[in-house]
Design a protein around this nucleic acid. Structure first.
Lengths: 340, 340
DNA sequence: ACTGGCACTCGCTACAGTCGAGTGCCAGGA
DNA sequence: TCCTGGCACTCGACTGTAGCGAGTGCCAGT
């Protein structure tokens, strides 16, 4: 399977043409639009080899060639350079993100920005609680047997939860509880809290013990178990570009997948190192998303990663452009978070 | 424009058949499927009148009839009874909503429930801050010049905002600020807060004056001006049922409209009394949604209304069923909120 | 190893013909 | 006056045929 340079150039040309025109590309059109220095017949021979190797295929016997998932993969890995962003895009990013007023705002602006720049569906994970630390825990009495627990994370996320107490608790005890809880948990990474919560119960003075036990349950749920991840989504209307040709005519499976937070998290959440990940076609694990590709990366203040963001679109997408945009947006968001 | 009873019955039959079969309905099929007691020829005459009056139309010269927006309107207003919910649906509602753990949870469960029961796109507005009261305001020092302001509303909504102070403020002053702010604002309806915030600044002791001024600005923004409304959405995949026949082949405009919170709020938010509102076709003000209908109603604990919820789908929808479901869900959610 | 030439494939479009659901109209009957 | 059966008509949906053309694979020649 020796693919010489010219065959690779042919593959690159096919991918680029197909991405921009959305139509199967034939040998003649190829030599006209690219300076390959050879005749259509030669290109045809190269194409035959590329097809044999599984990088391209023919939708119909007498149509041009279309890249396969494998072809896109080779293109992304070896044939493309990341496009530098245009100055206009840089300006758009900066303009869009200044003036963000809290975390919700940052996330919403980011996801819309991504959708707008890439013209794909954009997904942004809220800073993961598992990777955050506790900045402050607040207990607000609602009635004598009810507390509102408010947890503020260092990433700016705020989670709240109603706590039903086993019995009436006087106000001064709430103050004690608040102090104890904060002494123990403030500054701790959320993933480290379970043992701390345990000692919290054990060390609690006798009269607070039952209340603290209840509180501990809710704390664990809130800090660790609960829907700890949140997701923002934008740009679903972009799925309708390319007039139903992408996604083999039905948006249904895509829309269904996008409604499942679990799916989205798996797609953009598990970025291990700070690299950009590209999932092409059925490289992702979801049948519904076989016709889609995902470009995602992690973001966070400084070098730490607190969440993921990315875009989803047809396999026929502008990978170099989208990779560049996703990276740039992630970097800007990271800087923004670092300021808080 | 005298429409006698039989003509109305014909219209009703046309709407019902078309909604269930999705195909233009002809005179012969009509008399077969409904006991109208007359011949197809008679029905044809009635149809001619209904068409002249604008209640139905023919997609093509030799096809059956299809209701117009006006026809649906008449059907909804005068020809349909609200369907009672099936026991299965009642059970589904109850099962779905028990175990909701906080407001976010309630809203999410509700919107998914609505989407599932109606098989349409569901929209739920979070309890409007304008109609809520302040339960508690919390100030959490982040650094000497930064506070996190957390506002807890009686509806369970929690809003947070970062406050950049004009200068360093010692911890005991924060305690004073917290006390002053809560004394003045706790229990107040959010819509009534602006003058209260004003007096808060005026009455503040001199040494707190600058800090309080800054805080007041943020308070006003948070309580009144900011994106005070939030929206949850589910079931967009349901738009693809009816295989592109609804929405004249393009989901684009619909998806675009659904991404605009402002649009959704106008659709489901402005329910004045506790009545159910039905917007058919271009009765709504958005060009993008000409091919869609919206069924919405308000919800809230007891008789007060704190937000809206509803469903959006093709004009060809099961109005009686959807109206019943929307009402029932709104009532259950109201009860749930009343418990907190 | 590349190229020009050539026969072949096959999807797309246009066109003609048939079918049938559905209509409007009219004359006759309760 | 209102309803009904009958009848001619319309027109979209479907089918089959034919021609076109983009694109290919192969081969002989350079």
């Amino acid at each position: 399977m020796g693919l010489d340079d010219r065959k690779l150039a042919v593959l690159r040309a096919i991918v680029e043409d197909y991405v921009s025109t959305q139509e199967p590309v034939g040998s003649k059109a190829l030599v006209e639009r690219h300076q390959l220095g050879v005749s259509p017949a030669t290109v045809r021979n190269d194409m035959a080899v590329l097809e044999e190797e599984g990088y391209i295929r023919q939708p119909h016997t007498s149509a041009g060639r279309v890249p396969t998932d494998r072809g896109y993969r080779l293109f992304v890995d070896r044939l493309s350079r990341v496009k530098p962003l245009s100055p206009a895009e840089r300006r758009a990013i900066e303009r869009f993100l200044v003036g963000a007023v809290d975390l919700d705002d940052v996330v919403h602006r980011t996801v819309r920005l991504l959708a707008q720049l890439t013209r794909q569906v954009a997904v942004v994970q809220y800073p993961s609680l598992a990777r955050s630390s506790v900045r402050h825990l607040e207990l607000v009495p609602i009635s004598t047997t009810r507390l509102m627990l408010v947890m503020i994370a260092d990433t700016g996320r705020v989670e709240q939860r109603l706590v039903e107490l086993p019995g009436p608790v006087p106000a001064e005890n709430v103050t004690d509880l608040r102090r104890l809880v904060n002494e123990k948990l403030t500054g701790a990474r959320l993933s480290d809290t379970p043992p701390l919560v345990q000692t919290l119960v054990e060390e609690a003075p006798a009269e607070l013990r039952p209340t603290m036990t209840t509180l501990a349950t809710v704390l664990l749920e809130t800090l660790v178990e609960r829907h700890e991840e949140r997701i923002a989504l934008a740009g679903t209307a972009n799925l309708t570009r390319g007039g139903l040709l992408d996604f083999q005519g039905s948006l249904r499976p895509i829309l269904e997948a996008l409604e499942e937070e679990v799916v989205l998290l798996k797609l953009i959440g598990e970025t291990e190192p700070s690299t950009t990940r590209v999932l092409i076609g059925d490289e992702n694990e979801f049948d519904n998303l076989r016709a889609a590709s995902v470009v995602s990366t992690g973001y966070g203040p400084g070098a730490t990663i607190v969440g993921g963001l990315g875009v989803l679109g047809p396999t026929r997408m502008d990978y170099p452009g989208n990779i560049a945009t996703v990276r740039a947006v992630a970097r800007y968001v990271g800087e923004l978070l670092a300021q808080n």
